[in-house]
Simulated scan of single mutants.
Amino acid sequence: MIKKNSSKRPKIVVIGGGTGLPVILKSLKNKNIDITAIVTTADDGGSSGILRNYIDMVPPGDIRNVMDALSNLPKVNLNLFQYRFKSKDQFFAGHPIGNLIIAALSEMNGGIFNAVKELSRIMKVDGHVYPATEQKLVLHAKFKDGSQVDGESEITNAHGQIKRVWVTTTNGKAPKAIDPVIKAIHDADQIVLGPGSLFTSILPELMINNLGKAIINANAQVVYICNIMAQNGETNGFSDADHVKVLNQHLKHHFIDMVFVNNKKVPKGYIDQNKWDEYNQQITKDPDELRKHGCKFIYDDFLDLHDHGAFHNGDKVVKKLLNIL
């Protein structure tokens, strides 16, 4: 790994998964920061789900995207790493090459942790990438109507109002975060949660008992980057304060110090609902309720509009993170 006076650089730990985490990491990469990305291992859909089941490995998809975000390889190499075989290629249909490389390295190196360590070297990653745990996680959700659904993709597709989530290993036991994850949280100056799906990208890591406790006990500033849009099946009708309330309820502690909330309006009719069907309305703002949860907040323009979708502008978010750090 490339190191640049790492002992003197501020240490920022970013926790999450999905498409939101790489946005922040790409903008952090070129700053004088010691970066650690802690990535969810609960994904069970698409290529990751297939490899998880057939090869009995931790799902590689979110790890692949984080590696891409932090790599210093030329663009042509990264394009190959991220290339996804077309659906007509039956044997490899839907698999990105990067997922297959991670699968191979996991077999060669005796597990996902050593595989990621080796791949970080190969891809010239400036920072540390850790799976939240070396165990495959199963995400469970109880809905407000009393029903229960198991598995991340099934929970998302249920489109119900989620009351709470928790994680187990595939054999039903309590998972445990690996020691380097706990040490990174302990040593951090700032811990960033998100952006990402509240119940399926962020909470799965926090529900790992020793990881959640490490965040609660950390001396670091804990920042939550609130989603721009509500998500169907997860956060319909949520305000920014509702997100924080759910996080606090799950960890049974008021542990969020700062919340970043986009206040720029998404133009009416801009979002392509066919392409981005998980989007709902914009998250509403409730500053009075945020104060009741004991956290400060920043309302600002964090919006990046492209491809007829609404995303976080990584550079704007990182500028604010470094300002408050």
Rank of each mutant, 00 (worst) to 15 (best):
321 L>W: 08
307 D>I: 04
199 F>P: 02
49 G>S: 09
207 M>K: 13
185 I>V: 12
291 R>E: 15
257 D>P: 06
240 D>Q: 02
211 L>S: 10
266 V>N: 06
5 N>P: 02
15 I>Q: 05
66 V>I: 11
173 K>W: 01
189 D>A: 13
198 L>F: 05
318 V>N: 04
189 D>C: 13
291 R>Y: 11
79 N>L: 13
147 S>C: 01
60 P>Y: 06
26 K>F: 02
226 C>S: 08
251 L>S: 10
57 M>L: 15
102 I>M: 05
184 A>F: 01
148 Q>S: 08
93 A>T: 07
264 K>H: 14
28 L>S: 05
118 E>Y: 07
79 N>E: 15
298 I>V: 15
257 D>E: 09
258 M>S: 04
195 P>S: 12
287 P>H: 06
122 I>M: 09
251 L>C: 10
88 K>D: 12
289 E>C: 06
179 D>V: 15
219 N>P: 01
229 M>E: 04
82 Q>K: 15
92 F>V: 11
67 M>H: 12
53 N>K: 14
232 N>M: 05
243 H>P: 10
64 R>W: 02
183 K>D: 10
270 Y>C: 06
212 G>M: 03
220 A>I: 01
303 L>F: 04
163 K>I: 00
304 D>C: 08
236 N>K: 13
311 F>E: 04
245 K>F: 09
189 D>L: 14
254 H>S: 12
284 T>P: 13
10 P>E: 03
325 L>W: 07
255 F>N: 07
87 S>L: 06
288 D>F: 11
100 L>H: 08
125 V>E: 03
140 H>A: 09
197 S>C: 13
130 Y>V: 02
289 E>F: 03
156 T>N: 10
71 S>E: 15
228 I>S: 04
11 K>H: 15
194 G>M: 11
67 M>D: 04
249 Q>G: 08
37 A>Q: 01
325 L>R: 06
207 M>C: 14
265 K>F: 10
112 I>G: 00
254 H>D: 13
309 G>T: 04
275 K>F: 01
247 L>K: 03
224 Y>Q: 04
41 T>A: 12
36 T>I: 02
121 R>H: 14
183 K>S: 09
68 D>R: 11
156 T>H: 00
24 I>F: 01
80 L>G: 11
230 A>Q: 15
199 F>W: 08
279 Y>A: 13
160 G>P: 00
9 R>K: 11
243 H>Y: 12
124 K>F: 06
235 T>Y: 02
15 I>V: 15
101 I>V: 15
2 I>N: 15
182 I>R: 02
301 D>T: 09
248 N>W: 04
153 S>C: 10
35 I>K: 02
107 E>L: 13
291 R>F: 11
190 Q>A: 12
292 K>A: 09
269 G>L: 08
229 M>Q: 08
251 L>I: 07
12 I>W: 00
253 H>G: 00
110 G>L: 05
169 T>M: 03
263 N>Y: 06
191 I>T: 08
309 G>Q: 04
250 H>Q: 10
289 E>T: 11
202 I>T: 02
112 I>N: 00
235 T>A: 01
293 H>W: 12
242 D>E: 11
226 C>Y: 03
149 V>I: 14
170 T>M: 12
217 N>E: 10
48 S>W: 00
277 D>C: 08
18 G>H: 03
322 L>S: 00
213 K>W: 02
63 I>N: 06
180 P>A: 12
185 I>G: 03
